[in-house]
Design a protein around this nucleic acid. Sequence first.
DNA 1: CCAGACGTTGTT
DNA 2: GTCTGG
DNA 3: CCAGACGTTGTT
DNA 4: GTCTGG
Length: 441
Amino acid sequence: MCGRGRGTLRPDDFPRACHLNGRPVRHLNMDRYQPSYNVAPGFNVPVVRRDEEGDSDGVVLHCMKWGLIPSFTKKNEKIDHFRMFNARCESIREKASFRRLLPKNRCLVSFEGFYEWKKDGLRKQPYYIHFKDGRPLIFAGLFDSWRSSEGEILYSFTIVTTTSSSSLEWLHDRMPVVLGNKESTDSWLNDAPLSNLDKILKPYEGTDLAWYPVTTAIGKLSLNGPECIKEIQIKTEETKSISQFFSKKDICAKPPIKKEPVEATEQESMKNELENQSTLENKRMKAESVQNGQQKSVKEEPESQLTLDNTTVTAEPVQNSQQKSVKEEPQSQSTVQNRRMEGEPEENSQQKSMKEEHDESQDDYRQTTTKKDDGDNTCDIYTLSPEGATSSIEKRDYSEFSAHAKPSTRETERRHTTPVKKKSKGADDKQPTLFSYFGRS
DNA sequence: CCAGACGTTGTT
DNA sequence: GTCTGG
DNA sequence: CCAGACGTTGTT
DNA sequence: GTCTGG
């Protein structure tokens, strides 16, 4: 589990997401960071760890390789980042590779979301799991360093996993340890004693997680743009027949036939337009991409939205039946939450190289604000540069982050989200609004 | 004493 | 490095 | 994590 | 199925 994630945060987002406002932050190897919607083990990923040098309360935003390479790895041994990209919390105290890291080598890993493949017989359907309000997830991590034969020091980390929360059991039996508040992140990062570990290395049972199915094309790492997190409609046997009935051309694989919305609400169709637009743009900036028949079929299927809706409309199977139905999937339906993508295909890629070890003093955190949606969702995010020598930035619509927190459409949004104990119509849960992290800086 | 392992997934 | 197995 | 290969002989 | 590569 947790072998893929979305890592498109800007460097400045990490300390804030980890509730480290005001503390000195050193940057290490951040020039290696290449944001991607499809991050896998072997990638360079920024983690936050304590700074042993300098100020005692300082932290380091340190770009490391995902996939632990223990320090005792043989010099000649081939390094394999896929062997230990996860660490079972049940075994970190025993296993030699992890145990030694517990005292002083803990770190925080931050992804906006992660992907999990649900096995349905032969099919494997990936889902994207994220916070409703779009704030990043914080995982418990452990890191190590290894000296290669060339004298190079390789830093790497692993993500601690635990059993799945009750709301995600239907998807998978394991999930990353999600540190949901400042108390837990501070505890993991700073607490030397391993006595309190059991308290924080538990499945995240908060009600503010959400998920939806995404294209199976994310299996290929070459797909690494926003289309990775575009919600798709599940193809059940039923839907297949229906869509076949309405359009035969699908099987004949004709040249690009523009979409044919069999049925779509107003916002749905609008969403589709936006997404089609963005897809084109992405293709343009993408080096290779898998652009072929299959991917096309995925996006040119605005139809099939109808069937799934009945499931949810009827009633939320929440309440008590929830825990029993491990088999059944409280899975997706159409959510309005992901109306993202760039509204303005402006290509304002400016060069900005992140400097090593550069200390920033951007203390304009406004995370105290509780403003909801001010309508301004544009800000800089990092996008892949062809060769990754330097990171380029592109202006685009950032609503994908905050859209999840849209107060409107609450009822529909609630479907694919963590079941709530009580379904009182009033206020949603008590989770703090933190998406202001992403206000343009 | 030395030698060898040291890990996670998931498995129609 | 550190633990287990022989 | 997923995707893709999975082989030999003999070769200008 | 199993191994390699990303």
